[in-house]
Amino acid sequence: MRDLLEVKNASKSYRVKSGEVKAVDGVDLMARKGEVTVIVGPSGSGKTTLLYLIGSLERPDTGEINVFGENICRPNADLIQYRRKRVGFVFQMFNLISALTALENVVLPMDLEGISPAEQHRRAEELLQRMGIDHRLQKAKANRMSGGEKQRVAIARALANDPDVILADEPTGNLDSATGKVVVDILAGLARRDGKCVLIVTHDEGILQVADWAYQMRDGRLKGMEVRG
Protein backbone atom coordinates (compact mmCIF):
# COMPACT_ATOMS: atom_id res chain seq x y z
CA MET A 1 0.00 0.00 0.00
CA ARG A 2 2.95 2.30 -0.58
CA ASP A 3 1.18 4.31 -3.24
CA LEU A 4 -1.93 4.86 -1.18
CA LEU A 5 -3.07 7.38 1.37
CA GLU A 6 -5.41 5.39 3.53
CA VAL A 7 -7.71 6.33 6.36
CA LYS A 8 -9.22 3.34 8.08
CA ASN A 9 -12.19 3.66 10.39
CA ALA A 10 -10.92 6.91 11.90
CA SER A 11 -12.96 8.67 14.57
CA LYS A 12 -12.44 11.84 16.48
CA SER A 13 -14.76 13.40 19.02
CA TYR A 14 -14.51 16.59 20.96
CA ARG A 15 -15.81 17.26 24.40
CA VAL A 16 -18.01 20.31 24.40
CA LYS A 17 -20.32 21.83 26.99
CA SER A 18 -23.35 20.00 25.73
CA GLY A 19 -21.59 16.66 25.74
CA GLU A 20 -19.56 15.12 22.99
CA VAL A 21 -19.35 15.94 19.30
CA LYS A 22 -18.33 13.17 16.97
CA ALA A 23 -16.51 15.40 14.45
CA VAL A 24 -15.20 12.41 12.49
CA ASP A 25 -17.09 9.18 12.81
CA GLY A 26 -15.65 5.95 11.45
CA VAL A 27 -14.24 7.34 8.26
CA ASP A 28 -12.61 5.24 5.54
CA LEU A 29 -10.82 7.07 2.76
CA MET A 30 -8.31 6.38 0.03
CA ALA A 31 -6.34 8.80 -2.15
CA ARG A 32 -3.59 8.33 -4.69
CA LYS A 33 -0.66 10.25 -6.01
CA GLY A 34 -1.33 12.09 -9.23
CA GLU A 35 -4.99 12.42 -8.44
CA VAL A 36 -7.28 15.07 -6.98
CA THR A 37 -9.53 13.81 -4.22
CA VAL A 38 -12.33 16.14 -3.17
CA ILE A 39 -14.49 15.93 -0.06
CA VAL A 40 -17.58 18.08 -0.05
CA GLY A 41 -19.88 18.69 2.83
CA PRO A 42 -21.68 21.43 4.68
CA SER A 43 -20.11 23.52 7.35
CA GLY A 44 -19.62 21.62 10.60
CA SER A 45 -19.65 18.21 8.96
CA GLY A 46 -16.11 17.40 10.13
CA LYS A 47 -14.10 18.10 6.99
CA THR A 48 -11.43 20.22 8.66
CA THR A 49 -11.09 17.73 11.48
CA LEU A 50 -10.55 14.91 9.01
CA LEU A 51 -7.92 16.93 7.17
CA TYR A 52 -6.07 17.71 10.42
CA LEU A 53 -6.13 14.05 11.32
CA ILE A 54 -4.41 13.29 8.03
CA GLY A 55 -2.03 16.21 8.58
CA SER A 56 -1.14 14.86 12.06
CA LEU A 57 -2.31 18.06 13.75
CA GLU A 58 -4.89 15.97 15.56
CA ARG A 59 -4.70 12.38 16.69
CA PRO A 60 -7.67 10.09 15.96
CA ASP A 61 -9.41 8.47 18.92
CA THR A 62 -9.65 5.23 16.98
CA GLY A 63 -8.61 4.00 13.54
CA GLU A 64 -5.46 4.22 11.56
CA ILE A 65 -3.96 6.54 9.00
CA ASN A 66 -1.37 5.28 6.55
CA VAL A 67 0.33 7.77 4.32
CA PHE A 68 2.28 6.05 1.60
CA GLY A 69 3.44 3.31 3.86
CA GLU A 70 3.90 5.38 7.01
CA ASN A 71 1.46 4.83 9.84
CA ILE A 72 1.29 8.26 11.48
CA CYS A 73 -0.79 6.98 14.38
CA ARG A 74 2.05 4.90 15.68
CA PRO A 75 3.03 6.15 19.11
CA ASN A 76 6.62 6.80 18.04
CA ALA A 77 5.88 8.29 14.62
CA ASP A 78 8.18 11.18 13.77
CA LEU A 79 5.50 13.81 13.30
CA ILE A 80 7.96 16.71 12.96
CA GLN A 81 9.55 15.15 9.89
CA TYR A 82 6.13 14.13 8.63
CA ARG A 83 4.79 17.68 8.84
CA ARG A 84 7.91 19.14 7.30
CA LYS A 85 8.38 16.80 4.36
CA ARG A 86 5.38 14.57 3.69
CA VAL A 87 2.46 16.98 3.79
CA GLY A 88 1.81 20.57 2.83
CA PHE A 89 -1.17 22.54 4.10
CA VAL A 90 -3.26 25.10 2.26
CA PHE A 91 -5.79 26.87 4.48
CA GLN A 92 -8.93 28.86 3.89
CA MET A 93 -7.45 31.70 5.97
CA PHE A 94 -4.10 31.40 4.12
CA ASN A 95 -2.27 31.46 7.47
CA LEU A 96 0.77 33.22 6.15
CA ILE A 97 3.00 34.93 8.72
CA SER A 98 2.05 38.51 8.16
CA ALA A 99 5.30 40.10 9.37
CA LEU A 100 7.27 38.16 6.77
CA THR A 101 7.55 38.69 3.03
CA ALA A 102 6.17 36.21 0.54
CA LEU A 103 9.65 34.87 -0.05
CA GLU A 104 10.37 34.51 3.67
CA ASN A 105 7.10 32.65 4.16
CA VAL A 106 8.06 30.13 1.50
CA VAL A 107 11.59 29.85 2.86
CA LEU A 108 10.36 29.13 6.39
CA PRO A 109 9.66 25.35 6.12
CA MET A 110 13.01 24.85 4.41
CA ASP A 111 14.72 26.93 7.08
CA LEU A 112 13.20 24.79 9.82
CA GLU A 113 14.44 21.72 7.99
CA GLY A 114 17.95 23.13 7.81
CA ILE A 115 18.34 23.51 4.07
CA SER A 116 21.15 25.86 3.07
CA PRO A 117 20.14 29.51 2.63
CA ALA A 118 21.21 29.61 -1.01
CA GLU A 119 19.14 26.53 -1.83
CA GLN A 120 16.20 27.88 0.16
CA HIS A 121 16.19 31.04 -1.87
CA ARG A 122 16.64 29.41 -5.20
CA ARG A 123 13.79 27.01 -4.58
CA ALA A 124 11.48 29.60 -3.01
CA GLU A 125 11.95 31.95 -5.95
CA GLU A 126 11.34 29.14 -8.41
CA LEU A 127 8.12 28.08 -6.63
CA LEU A 128 6.81 31.62 -6.36
CA GLN A 129 7.64 32.28 -9.98
CA ARG A 130 5.69 29.20 -10.90
CA MET A 131 2.74 30.45 -8.83
CA GLY A 132 2.89 33.69 -10.78
CA ILE A 133 4.33 35.81 -7.96
CA ASP A 134 6.93 38.03 -9.60
CA HIS A 135 10.15 39.24 -7.95
CA ARG A 136 8.73 42.54 -6.80
CA LEU A 137 5.78 40.84 -5.12
CA GLN A 138 8.04 38.25 -3.53
CA LYS A 139 9.59 41.03 -1.45
CA ALA A 140 6.20 42.32 -0.30
CA LYS A 141 4.90 41.62 3.16
CA ALA A 142 2.28 38.91 3.20
CA ASN A 143 -0.31 41.17 4.78
CA ARG A 144 -0.07 43.59 1.83
CA MET A 145 -1.20 40.99 -0.69
CA SER A 146 -4.57 40.20 -2.21
CA GLY A 147 -6.36 36.99 -1.27
CA GLY A 148 -5.47 35.24 -4.52
CA GLU A 149 -1.83 36.20 -4.15
CA LYS A 150 -1.77 35.04 -0.56
CA GLN A 151 -3.24 31.68 -1.48
CA ARG A 152 -0.68 31.20 -4.24
CA VAL A 153 2.11 32.04 -1.78
CA ALA A 154 0.54 29.55 0.63
CA ILE A 155 0.61 26.86 -2.05
CA ALA A 156 4.27 27.65 -2.75
CA ARG A 157 4.97 27.29 0.96
CA ALA A 158 3.13 23.94 1.04
CA LEU A 159 5.39 22.76 -1.77
CA ALA A 160 8.61 24.03 -0.22
CA ASN A 161 9.94 20.70 1.02
CA ASP A 162 8.41 18.82 -1.93
CA PRO A 163 5.84 16.74 0.01
CA ASP A 164 3.80 13.91 -1.48
CA VAL A 165 0.50 15.17 -0.12
CA ILE A 166 -1.16 18.55 -0.40
CA LEU A 167 -4.00 19.06 2.04
CA ALA A 168 -6.23 21.99 1.12
CA ASP A 169 -8.94 23.16 3.51
CA GLU A 170 -11.50 25.30 1.71
CA PRO A 171 -8.78 26.84 -0.46
CA THR A 172 -11.30 29.01 -2.27
CA GLY A 173 -13.35 29.94 0.76
CA ASN A 174 -12.04 33.48 0.95
CA LEU A 175 -11.61 34.12 -2.75
CA ASP A 176 -13.89 35.41 -5.46
CA SER A 177 -14.88 32.77 -8.01
CA ALA A 178 -12.39 33.85 -10.70
CA THR A 179 -9.42 33.78 -8.36
CA GLY A 180 -10.78 30.66 -6.77
CA LYS A 181 -10.75 28.95 -10.12
CA VAL A 182 -7.13 29.93 -10.69
CA VAL A 183 -6.18 28.44 -7.33
CA VAL A 184 -8.12 25.24 -7.96
CA ASP A 185 -6.45 24.87 -11.33
CA ILE A 186 -3.06 25.25 -9.73
CA LEU A 187 -3.92 22.57 -7.17
CA ALA A 188 -5.20 20.27 -9.91
CA GLY A 189 -1.99 20.92 -11.82
CA LEU A 190 0.03 19.75 -8.84
CA ALA A 191 -1.64 16.36 -9.11
CA ARG A 192 -1.53 16.07 -12.84
CA ARG A 193 1.92 17.52 -13.59
CA ASP A 194 3.84 16.88 -10.36
CA GLY A 195 2.15 13.68 -9.35
CA LYS A 196 1.15 14.96 -5.91
CA CYS A 197 -1.63 13.46 -3.95
CA VAL A 198 -4.01 16.42 -3.68
CA LEU A 199 -6.79 16.30 -1.12
CA ILE A 200 -9.27 19.18 -1.10
CA VAL A 201 -12.10 19.59 1.42
CA THR A 202 -14.71 22.18 0.62
CA HIS A 203 -18.34 23.08 0.72
CA ASP A 204 -17.98 24.47 -2.80
CA GLU A 205 -19.34 21.77 -5.12
CA GLY A 206 -17.83 23.58 -8.11
CA ILE A 207 -14.49 22.11 -7.19
CA LEU A 208 -15.85 18.68 -7.98
CA GLN A 209 -15.12 19.56 -11.61
CA VAL A 210 -11.42 18.86 -11.08
CA ALA A 211 -11.92 15.85 -8.86
CA ASP A 212 -10.72 12.39 -9.79
CA TRP A 213 -12.32 11.00 -6.70
CA ALA A 214 -15.00 12.54 -4.55
CA TYR A 215 -16.60 11.96 -1.17
CA GLN A 216 -19.54 13.45 0.53
CA MET A 217 -19.24 14.24 4.23
CA ARG A 218 -22.15 14.69 6.59
CA ASP A 219 -22.14 14.63 10.39
CA GLY A 220 -18.68 13.18 10.50
CA ARG A 221 -19.47 10.34 8.14
CA LEU A 222 -17.96 9.90 4.70
CA LYS A 223 -19.65 8.46 1.61
CA GLY A 224 -18.16 7.85 -1.82
CA MET A 225 -19.56 9.88 -4.74
CA GLU A 226 -19.78 9.45 -8.47
CA VAL A 227 -17.62 11.88 -10.43
CA ARG A 228 -17.80 12.77 -14.13
CA GLY A 229 -17.42 9.54 -16.07
Binding site: N95, L108, E113
Partner: peptide, 16 residues
Amino acid sequence: TRELGVLKAIGATDRQ
Protein backbone atom coordinates in the same frame (compact mmCIF):
# COMPACT_ATOMS: atom_id res chain seq x y z
CA THR B 1 -1.26 32.37 18.14
CA ARG B 2 -1.99 31.81 14.48
CA GLU B 3 1.70 32.18 13.78
CA LEU B 4 2.46 29.63 16.49
CA GLY B 5 -0.06 27.29 14.92
CA VAL B 6 1.48 27.71 11.48
CA LEU B 7 4.96 27.04 12.83
CA LYS B 8 3.76 23.83 14.43
CA ALA B 9 1.82 22.77 11.32
CA ILE B 10 4.83 23.13 9.08
CA GLY B 11 7.01 21.10 11.41
CA ALA B 12 8.75 23.51 13.78
CA THR B 13 9.85 21.84 16.98
CA ASP B 14 8.94 23.42 20.30
CA ARG B 15 12.62 24.13 20.77
CA GLN B 16 12.81 26.08 17.53
